[in-house]
């Protein structure tokens, strides 16, 4: 009788242990499966975004539109988009997944360094310097509100900034008080650097239109000045909130200008074999394009003049 009871007991113990092992195995499988599906989802988003950015960066259309999950990128649900610059390479990571990373090539995408969105406001602006270099893509969270702060010396220039109406932009004087909301993105166009009470805003930057440089307020202090080559970067500075990202994009733009200048210089050299009119100085244009590509951007207006003289180089 005792043996029979013990046998029954051992049987139950065995069943319970085996059942726990099987249950544990199934639970592990389910967790791993969910992890895999999440990873596929993240990679899918990064692939869709990468294709979209590649097409947008060279699209002929310069327009503003609201891209949301029902029309454009089809994100499907709220996703965390992290932009970063590592080893001079601009990266986009989705949902902090190390496998869902897109490495930008020739795209110029200006955005906050981190966006948690299910829809995106987007604006394309072609950039000419003096030839077509590419499209600037500006991204923003639809809930972002921009405040442009001007003083007496910058009022006219700030009011003439042309930002599409899909973005919520309010222009105020330095003497006006800013709302207490913490989700504001404040851009100062003032002569002097603002100092007080900036931590309450979600992002703060200071743009000097006359000197073409920008500073970002990060971790309680102002970053170093970052110079930019063209007025088009003013809009880039408005949409950015990180000095490292903005520096990265300025550097990419300079590399792009350098390469395109070489292509146009080579084209000028080829044209010189066909157009031998004495008034056409392709050799001079060649030299100027080479210097321009090396960073001598003061040659910008002379390049435009030289281009219109004979067979068009660009």
């Amino acid at each position: 009788m005792n043996h029979k009871g013990q046998t029954e007991q051992f049987n139950w113990i065995f069943v319970l242990v085996a059942g726990a092992i099987i249950l544990g195995f199934f639970s592990l499988f389910i967790f791993k499966y969910v992890e895999l599906q999440q990873k596929r989802f993240n990679i899918g988003i990064s692939q869709d975004l990468s294709n979209a950015f590649q097409v947008l960066s060279t699209s002929s259309v310069g327009s503003s539109s609201t891209i949301d999950s029902s029309e454009g990128f089809k994100i499907g649900s709220t996703a965390l988009l992290d932009f970063s610059c590592t080893d001079d390479q601009l990266l986009l990571r989705v949902n902090e997944d190390p496998d869902a990373v897109y490495r930008f090539r020739d795209e110029f995408v200006f955005s906050r360094s981190s966006l948690r969105v299910d829809s995106l406001d987007l604006w394309l602006k072609p950039w000419f310097f003096p030839f077509y270099v590419g499209n600037f893509v500006f991204l923003s969270d639809p809930d972002d509100v921009f405040y442009f702060v001007y003083d007496a010396s910058t009022r006219e220039e700030v009011l003439s900034l042309d930002i599409p109406s899909i973005f919520t932009v309010k222009t105020v004087s330095i003497n006006d008080a800013l709302p207490e909301r913490s989700s504001l993105r404040v851009v100062y166009f003032t002569s002097s650097l603002p100092r007080s009470d900036l931590d309450r805003f979600s992002s703060v930057s200071h743009i000097s239109l006359s000197e073409k440089n920008v500073r970002f307020y990060e971790e309680g202090r102002w970053s170093d000045e970052i110079s930019f080559p063209s007025d088009a970067f003013v809009y880039g500075a408005v949409f950015s909130d990180s000095s490292s990202l903005f520096s990265c994009l300025v550097q990419k733009s300079e590399e792009r200008i350098s390469f395109l200048s070489k292509v146009y210089a080579q084209k000028a050299h080829l044209l010189s074999f066909f157009d031998r009119r004495p008034e056409c100085s392709y050799d001079l244009l060649f030299q100027r394009l080479v210097s321009f590509g090396k960073g001598d951007y003061d040659l910008l207006s002379s390049l435009e003049g030289e281009n219109s003289a004979c067979m068009l180089v660009f």
Binding site: Y132, F259, K262, Q266, L312
Partner: peptide, 24 residues
């Protein structure tokens, strides 16, 4: 549509490939 290949006329992008730029 890339600026390395597309034709352009006084800075305005055209919808064609510039054969000299292809070679360049």
């Amino acid at each position: 549509e890339s600026p390395e290949f597309s034709c352009s006329f006084r800075g305005e992008k055209g919808h064609c490939l510039d054969t000299f730029k292809l070679l360049a």
